[in-house]
């Protein structure tokens, strides 16, 4: 199983530009998917990306899946009375005509149970499930542990 996943990673690693491309399903557009390198496979990985709903009906991101993590999930960083916690979240709203993001300090994809350490320069597939638009698979670029944003020519600072 691990070899198969590694082979997938190698295939994706050969096409690093993909994460910067926009992927669409229905009215949903996703781009700038990135992650940070991890120390070993015991630590959870993270996923950030940008979602645009070009339609006139609200949608929501309700799930994430990837072959490289046993328990991928959506989390939201919440700071209340100065204390940071990271509750699970069942869905992230993507209102009609708006952009929503998994971004540092807010909603993020949390990859528990990594099957391997994420290394800078790797890429992996991530399938997002939207309540209305359905499923869409993006390529996530693994950036350095200190990365702050996607490394795409048109990425927002």
């Amino acid at each position: 199983m691990k070899r198969l996943i590694l082979a997938t990673l190698v295939v994706f690693a050969a096409m690093p530009a993909l994460a910067c491309e926009t992927v669409r399903v229905g009215d949903i557009e996703v781009e700038h998917a990135w992650s940070r390198a991890t120390i070993g496979a015991d630590r959870p990985g993270v996923v950030y990306l940008s979602i645009r709903n070009t339609g006139s009906t609200d949608d929501a991101l309700i799930g994430v899946a990837t072959p490289i993590a046993g328990m991928p999930m959506l989390h939201e960083t919440v700071v209340s009375d100065g204390i940071a916690s990271m509750p699970h979240t069942m869905s992230m709203p993507v209102p009609a005509g708006q952009t929503a993001a998994l971004a540092p300090g807010g909603f993020h994809g949390m990859l528990m149970g990594l099957t391997l350490a994420l290394k800078k320069g790797d890429s992996f597939p991530l399938t997002l499930t939207f309540e209305t638009a359905g499923d869409l698979t993006v390529t996530v670029d693994v950036l350095g542990m200190g990365a702050k944003e996607a490394e795409c020519p048109d990425a927002q600072p």
Partner: peptide, 16 residues
Amino acid sequence: FTFCPDVCPTTLNDIS
């Protein structure tokens, strides 16, 4: 803590 995937790298980046 280093197992912290979001808040801690964000704060370390802010401080950097």
